[in-house]
Amino acid sequence: MRARLQAVLATAALVLAGSALAQDSTMDEIAKYREMLADGNPAELFELKGEALWKKARGPKNASLEQCDMGLGPGKLDGAYAQLPRYFPDTRKVMDVESRLVHCMVSLQGFKEEDVTRQWFSRPGKESDIEALVTYIGAKSNGMKIDVPARHPEEARMAKVGEYIFYRRSGPQDFSCSICHGQNDKRIRLQDLGNLTTQAGAGVAMSTWPSYRVSQGAMWTMQRRLIDCMRQARWPEPKYLSDSVIALQVYLQKNASGTVMQTPGIKR
């Protein structure tokens, strides 16, 4: 009986070892696939389009976005994305790159908010100006460190709200962000799930957005990424530019602070 038990245990150990080796091999292949994707990122085309849109006079006021203040002064974009979301005195609100961009399109160019946000993400045959502009702005922080310390009282409040949302269980499946992203070494199918409560995990997650999604053939912004995560968790889908999505970004960017930006990224 004892010999049989030892044989069973030995077989189980071999199976587990083989499974671990197969898993490591699969992850190595995924890493190679990601390296291949990075060679010739189509995001560069969106970046160029975003630059042209930034400099072009448009809207009822026939103005460009070159005087838009992303937090470092009118027209100053180098490093701005890496320091967002942040508090803006002129609106008395904490804003991320997309809410601030829409604010500038409305205040500087004279567009109506409902018009510029109608196409906030790409659909087949219909590209989004906002995605292109965010790609351009994001690229201006490439190689710079994320710096969202949330020191202003409103930023600190939003970080707390974001943390609450991260851990709050909701929806028909009683799900939370933390179930997938609150511990180390978790995975769904072949996808590693980073621990977003740590600098390392949050840094990997936040440093490469906006990103080009190969499977979608489109740029994805952080707003779209988070809203889609909430949809997959079967939560009530938040409205674009809602405070809840911005608060979650403050919490995650605060956790990721110190990580070097590598944007625009490319994903499967």
Rank of each mutant, 00 (worst) to 15 (best):
G110R: 11
T259W: 07
Q249A: 02
P210I: 02
Y33M: 14
R157D: 01
R118K: 15
L53Y: 04
G194R: 07
K160I: 08
A10C: 15
R213V: 08
G265K: 01
I246W: 08
D185K: 14
L21S: 11
L45W: 15
V106H: 00
H103D: 10
K32C: 06
Q119R: 12
G40I: 12
D24V: 14
Y87F: 04
V106C: 04
I137K: 13
P124I: 14
S207M: 10
P264I: 06
N195T: 00
V161F: 15
R169W: 01
C68L: 15
I146T: 01
L133C: 10
M230Q: 10
R187F: 07
M222Q: 10
F166Y: 11
W220C: 07
M206V: 03
R118C: 14
S141D: 04
T263V: 05
M36C: 15
L72V: 02
W54T: 03
S122E: 07
G138C: 14
K267G: 05
A31L: 14
M219V: 01
N195H: 01
Y212W: 14
A233M: 12
A200T: 05
A17K: 13
L190T: 13
P153G: 03
R169L: 06
K93L: 09
T263K: 09
E29C: 10
T208C: 11
K239I: 00
H103S: 14
G194W: 07
M27I: 13
S215I: 15
F121T: 07
D129M: 01
Y251D: 03
I146Q: 00
Y251G: 13
V161C: 03
Y87S: 06
K112P: 10
E98W: 01
V106M: 01
D90W: 08
G265M: 00
